[in-house]
């Protein structure tokens, strides 16, 4: 675990991103030694374990997603790795068309929160966070920072993608350990029928 990361991130670090962090550490050395040709993308020095989001964007998005599916007696969006689903799919997957929307939407969201509360979203109480989200969901926030996407449309998009990351197959980056299936009491993989199945076909 990288102590330099903000607390809200530490829970979101998967083995994959931890590996990438390790590689970043190595790369720091390698770049210093003029070895950037080995990992040319690392020479850009982009910080953080994410493929698309900056650390600051990811920190904000993690906090939003955690309000959309909060942890209670079972895990929430953060525990399920929803941020990694969205990051992976926006970077180069099923949601790549939404990349500019995320970039602009998260910035508008940040400005909205600062203007209303003089504080970052991540620093607010749960009640205040909920209030900010309800305001944006209902398109009642000051529209000034919001052009395209509109605030309510952006929120609906994040809600939908959070659901995808929480309930979709782990192969896409989220639903870690089939957390949501366990919450719903669904076997995975399915057993039913298979134990008795003999195919007629070769």
């Amino acid at each position: 675990m990288n102590p330099a990361l903000p607390a809200s991130h530490r829970t979101a670090v998967t083995r994959r991103s931890a590996l990438k962090l390790t590689m970043m550490g190595l790369a720091g050395t390698a770049v210093g030694a003029g070895g950037s040709a080995v990992f040319p993308w690392l020479a850009k020095g982009r910080p953080g374990p994410y493929r698309f989001f900056t650390d600051a964007e990811a920190e904000l998005l993690v906090a939003i997603c955690e309000q959309i599916i909060p942890r209670d007696d079972v895990g929430g969006a953060t525990d399920a790795g929803v941020i990694h689903y969205i990051d992976r799919q926006v970077a180069a997957g099923m949601l790549r068309e939404h990349a500019p929307t995320y970039r602009r939407g998260l910035e508008a969201f940040r400005l909205t929160c600062l203007a209303a509360h003089q504080a970052a979203f991540t620093e607010l109480s749960t009640e205040a966070k909920t209030e900010v989200l309800r305001t944006i969901e209902a398109a009642r926030a000051d529209p000034a920072p919001w052009g395209e996407p509109a605030q309510d449309a952006f929120f609906r998009l994040v809600v939908d993608h959070t659901m995808q990351g929480f309930y979709g197959s782990p192969r896409h980056g989220g639903n870690r350990g089939y957390l949501s299936y366990r919450m719903l009491g669904l076997d995975y993989p399915q057993v039913l029928g298979r134990n008795k199945f003999r195919s007629l076909e070769p």
Partner: peptide
């Protein structure tokens, strides 16, 4: 969304 979402699913 929120806890209401999770409660409904369950």
């Amino acid at each position: 969304w929120g806890k209401a979402h999770k409660d409904f699913q369950r």
